[in-house]
Simulated scan of single mutants.
Amino acid sequence: MSKYKLDYLAKYYFYEEDEFVNSVEDGEYILKQIKESNRFDYKGHSFKYTKFKNISMSDTQKDVDIEIKENSIDVVINGEKKHLDLIYKFETKQLEDHVRIATRISEEIDDISCLLYIDHNQADDFIKELKFVKKLQQDNMNK
């Protein structure tokens, strides 16, 4: 098992306007605010319009523990088993302070876009292990 510390884990939930108002607490109030400024931070979330004219709600956590267990198609994030859908999306980008990994995380009722930010000192090993997890996921699909 390997353990890493992510600098940030950002999850993104996407909504159409009608769905947003009915699904999110204080949705009408938030919608009014983002119509005025295109971005609004509220109760620990950031809300904004996307380039596709829907609404994104982001949830960002700092200093996130992630474990990759041997021969597992899942990972453990802050003590909870999670499935990163690395087959669907697995894109890396070198940034000044971090390496950003774009993927999707499967949760109880939805698949959520997410970004993992890890410092350069851990990035190579972490990405190598995620590539192995992706291979295990592909092998699992082909069974």
Results as ranks from 00 to 15, higher is better:
Met1Ser: 11
Met1Cys: 08
Met1Val: 06
Ser2Ile: 08
Tyr4Lys: 07
Tyr8Cys: 03
Ala10Glu: 13
Ala10Met: 13
Tyr15Leu: 08
Glu17Lys: 12
Tyr29His: 14
Lys32Val: 03
Ile34Trp: 01
Glu36Asp: 07
Arg39Trp: 02
Asp41Pro: 02
Gly44Met: 04
His45Glu: 01
His45Arg: 06
Phe47Met: 02
Lys53Val: 00
Ile55Trp: 00
Ile55Leu: 04
Ser56Pro: 06
Ser58Ile: 08
Ser58Trp: 01
Gln61Ala: 11
Asp63Leu: 07
Ile66Asn: 03
Lys69Trp: 00
Glu70Asn: 11
Asn71Ala: 06
Val75Asn: 02
Asn78Pro: 05
Glu80Leu: 10
Lys82Met: 11
His83Glu: 11
Leu86Arg: 10
Ile87Asp: 04
Ile87Val: 09
Tyr88Val: 11
Phe90Asp: 11
Phe90Glu: 13
Lys93Pro: 02
Gln94Val: 04
Leu95Phe: 05
His98Lys: 04
His98Cys: 05
Arg100Ala: 13
Ile105Glu: 08
Ile109Ala: 09
Ile109Lys: 15
Asp110Ile: 15
Ser113Asp: 14
Leu115Thr: 09
Ile127Leu: 14
Lys128Thr: 13
Glu129Phe: 12
Lys131Leu: 15
Lys135Gln: 15
Lys135Trp: 09
Asp139Gln: 15
Asn140Lys: 15
Met141Asp: 15
